[in-house]
């Protein structure tokens, strides 16, 4: 499903002394099937943005279109439940949403709310469990008996079981150790490709945005600050620095290298091995001149 924001603004507690503009005149378009990273500081409006994707928030101004669903301030929104069955959201620390007695019931909770048949729920539960890499023997256990990392996987399985077309991920790896982070992100990337999902990843990690996304939107103070492919966005070191964001390390290193050796190795989202070759060539090439 395509996602379109047209001049979207969102204001908390409008017309009170505490009025706070979380989003301001935000416009962008996300093509169906793309993997988009939304990057920005805490308080840049990322969370408010994603709450518009499934109608948890309705814009105070402007239009949000998600597939055939239209969200505006003036019109009463259509069937939000149907929209929410198409947009799965993995919130930050999703393990905090677990509540059922067994893991099986918790994973089936979403589909049940959306009126999926019992036999179908069973099937989806098994699928989702294997997608997140947990054993079926756990199904009868309480989710609260698991380790933190496993609880998170159960919570993610609960969102996957909804079988959404759009998967929204709000810092899904926060608090995990490096291996856990990599496993979870690789899993989402695999699902994204296998099920041709539209994936929206909210992250602080430039490295993850670079590694997984094909489109990047940088938010600053509720406004769109930069947008484009990772290759285009992440080379804008000065612009990013101005809003206290770092460029990915590899971009940083290439820039320092080019500066010091007076070379012009371009950043093309190359692998570390490719970069090593380019550096070697630059050093030798230099010598030949």
């Amino acid at each position: 499903m395509d996602i379109t924001f047209e001049n979207v603004s969102y204001t908390y507690q409008r017309n009170t002394p505490f009025e706070h503009k979380a989003l301001e005149d935000l416009s962008f378009h996300i093509k169906s099937g793309s993997f988009v990273a939304i990057v920005g500081h805490t308080g840049s409006g990322k969370s408010t943005l994603i709450s518009h994707l499934n109608g948890l928030s309705i814009p105070t101004d402007g239009k949000v279109k998600v597939g055939k669903y239209l969200l505006t301030h003036d019109e009463k929104p259509g069937d939000l439940k149907e929209l929410r069955s198409k947009v799965g959201v993995v919130f930050q620390y999703p393990e905090h949403q677990l509540f059922e007695e067994t893991i099986e019931k918790d994973i089936g909770f979403g589909p049940e709310n959306f009126g999926v048949s019992e036999s179908e729920i069973k099937e989806r539960t098994h699928e989702a469990l294997s997608a997140v890499g947990l054993s079926e023997t756990l199904l009868d256990r309480s989710p609260f008996d698991l380790s933190g990392g496993q609880m998170r996987r159960v919570a993610i399985a609960g969102v996957l079981a909804i079988k959404p077309d759009i998967l929204v991920l709000d810092e899904p790896t926060a608090g995990l150790d490096p291996r856990g982070q990599k496993e979870i992100m690789d899993m989402f990337y695999r699902l994204h490709q296998e099920q041709s999902l539209t994936t929206v990843l909210v992250t602080h990690s430039m490295e993850d945005a670079l590694k997984y996304a094909d489109h990047v939107i940088i938010l600053n103070k509720g406004k769109k600050y930069l947008e484009g492919t990772p290759e285009d966005v992440f080379v804008q070191k000065d612009a990013l620095k101005q809003v206290q964001l770092d460029v990915p390390e590899i971009v940083q290193f290439i820039a320092s290298f080019n500066h010091k050796f007076n070379t012009s190795i371009p950043f093309s989202n190359q692998s570390t091995e490719q970069l090593a070759k380019q550096i070697k060539q630059a050093l030798i090439g230099d010598e030949l001149e």
Binding site: T272, E273, L275, A276, K277, I279, K280, L283
Partner: peptide, 8 residues
């Protein structure tokens, strides 16, 4: 490491 691997 990558540099070492290719002989730098």
């Amino acid at each position: 490491d990558a540099l070492k691997d290719i002989g730098v």
